[in-house]
Amino acid sequence: MKLEIETLLREYGAREKKFDRGSVIYSSESGVEGIYYLVSGKIRIDNSRVRDKKEVLIWLLGSGSFFGISSYYNGYEACSYITTVISESATILLISREEFIHLLKEHKIMRDFIISLLYRRLDYIEQRRSYGPRVSFRKKLIDALVFLCPSHRPPEEAFTGKPFKIAVTLTELCSMISTTRKQLVTEIDNLINKRIIERDGDGITVRNYPKLMELE
């Protein structure tokens, strides 16, 4: 699916751009140039809507993700987002709004993909907004892990108890769910002891997704 999307984007004139760690892909100063697709690497999107206030992490996205849609698709070139590369490097494809709309008009596969992507992002962000002060830490962690899967949902095999990997560091998870490393490690170790997840340098392997969801 990923390859199909990349091929389509290039057919419709998307330009490839490469960025190093720490580079800003777009910000409120540069504005949004089009719609972006992350071929490889990882980015974080922060929003600083209120002037002079600290930025808020909105999204952590990995390869195969579109971004800039919510700003640019509706015609907002200026935005209050800042998008930064957090992996060693990142390669993106940048497509103009007009060509993106052409692409959507002519390819159902792309329409379906975008609808599903927007739906899941909306679902996750509305979940985050609904977190009260007493929401369980475990729930926030599980919601974040699900969101961080490619296409923001666990693969099909997860539902039959087969393991799958999520590429995320502890630092990134801490940012995502606004917690300390200590609290996160305690909960992660808890889940490891229950043999529900495993952790290595690359990320987290969910060994038993149905069991993880029961804990929520």
Binding site: N47, R49, V56, I58, N74, L104, I115, Y119
Partner: peptide, 29 residues
């Protein structure tokens, strides 16, 4: 009807933007 489909996507994108801004507001304001 492509226009309906695109309108639907536009609506989703608009709602997403609004939700993102609401999340920031809850945190910052």
């Amino acid at each position: 009807n492509n226009t309906l489909c695109l309108n639907t996507i536009q609506l989703l994108a608009r709602e997403l933007r609004q939700s993102e801004q609401q999340l920031v507001d809850i945190t910052q304001k």
